[in-house]
Design a protein around this nucleic acid. Structure first.
Lengths: 184, 184
DNA sequence: GGGCGCATGTAATGAGTTACATGATTGA
DNA sequence: TCAATCATGTAACTCATTACATGCGCCC
C-alpha cells in the first residue's frame, strides 16, 4: 500500500510518464523505497484501472511514445486518505538481524565480538553514506534525518552490546563447546 | 533466509516436531519473526529435502502422528554459516512510514501535528508493550533490548519533529492550499 | 455431545522481483 | 558502428500468506 501512496504522491506534484517517475525514484527516493521499475509500471496501470489516474499518450520528437499519468479527483482523495493512514499509524518493523542476535549465545565469545564489530562497521558505513546525502526538497529531509537517528541508535546499541559482550557468556547453555562448529 | 536460520537455530537447541516449534515461535519469538504456521511446515520439509535435517515420525498415546525434525551435521554447518552471515552483516531496513513522511508537507500544519502525535502515541504503546516482556533465556534479552532502544529513538525523533513541526511550513510548495482535500 | 487442543498439510492467491523482449535515437 | 539512453512491457518465478481440510482425543 505504501508503494501506491508513493506513486500517488509523486503524481500529486504533477503529471508524469513512467520512465521519468522511475528515474526519480531510483535517483532520489531509494532511501524510502525499493520499488522496482516493472512494479511501478504495473502499479500505474493498476491505479489507472481503479480510476485514480488518467492516462494519456504523448510523444516528443522521434522518441518512443510515453504514457503520461495524471491524478484525477478520486486519486487526489485516495492520496490523502493513504497519507493520513500512513502518518497516523505505526507498524512494528521486523529486522532480519534480530534472528541472528537471538542465537548469539551459540557462538564462542571471541567470534561473537568479531561479528558484532563487523556489523557495527556496516552500520557505520551506512551512516556515513546517509550523512553525505543532501536533503533536497519537500519533506525528504525528514526521512533522511529519521534514518540517521535510527542508525545512530543502532550503532550506539551495538557499542553497548560489544562492551558487555563477555558478560553474555553466562547465558550460554552449560556444556556448550567453545567452537561448536569444529566439534565434528 | 532468516526464516531458515530461525528454524535451524531452534532445532540446534534440540530436535522438535512442527507443532511444538510453531507454538514456541508464536509464544516467545513473535518479536523477531512473523513466520506463520504453514510456512514453518513448508520450510521444515524444504530443509529436509535439502539434507539439513532428518525427519522421524513418532506418536505419543493416541494423538496424531508427529514429524520430529533433527539437525544433522550438514544442518549444523549451515546453521553456523547463516548465523555468521546474519550477525556480521547489516541490511538497511525500509520503514513504510518513511513514505508518508516524505509527503508530510502536502498536509496543512495542523493536521501534520495531529497525525504525528497519533504516530507517537502508537510508538509509545508498542514501547510499553515491549517493556512488559520478560527476557527469557538465551540471547533473547538482547533482541528485546535492541528493539526497545530503537523504538525509543523513534519516539524521541518524533518528539523533535513535533517540536519543529511549524517550521516545516516553509517547505510547502508556494500556492498550496491549507486544506488540499477540501479544494474540490 | 460440543468445542477446544493436538497435529499436519494442501490449494489458491498475492505481492513483488528477475530476466527477457523490443526498437528507435543519440553520441563517441 | 557500438554502446548507452529512451520507453514500455510480459512471463516466469519466488516467497509467503490465507483459508480451508482432516480427524482423533480430551474435558466439561
Amino acid at each position: 500500500m505504501d508503494r501506491e501512496l508513493l506513486l500517488l504522491g509523486l503524481l500529486h506534484q504533477g503529471q508524469m510518464h513512467g520512465y521519468k517517475l522511475n528515474e526519480f525514484i531510483d535517483k532520489t527516493l531509494h532511501l524510502c523505497t525499493d520499488l522496482k521499475r516493472s512494479t511501478a509500471y504495473f502499479l500505474l496501470d493498476k491505479l489507472a484501472k481503479e480510476g485514480y489516474v488518467q492516462v494519456a499518450t504523448e510523444r516528443e520528437g522521434h522518441y518512443p511514445e510515453r504514457r503520461v499519468y495524471a491524478l484525477n479527483p478520486a486519486g487526489e482523495e485516495r492520496f490523502f486518505a493513504l497519507l493520513r493512514e500512513n502518518l497516523g499509524g505505526y507498524e512494528m518493523v521486523r529486522y532480519p538481524g534480530d534472528v541472528g542476535l537471538a542465537f548469539l549465545h551459540e557462538l564462542p565469545a571471541g567470534e561473537r565480538v568479531a561479528l558484532l564489530r563487523e556489523r557495527r562497521q556496516r552500520v557505520g558505513e551506512a551512516l556515513d553514506h546517509l550523512r553525505g546525502v543532501e536533503s533536497g526538497e519537500g519533506s525528504l529531509g525528514l526521512v533522511i534525518e529519521r534514518n540517521i537517528v535510527l542508525l545512530e541508535a543502532e550503532y550506539a546499541w551495538l557499542e553497548g552490546a560489544l562492551a558487555r559482550a563477555p558478560l553474555v557468556e553466562a547465558l550460554r547453555p552449560e556444556g556448550a563447546e567453545d567452537r561448536p562448529d569444529a566439534a565434528k
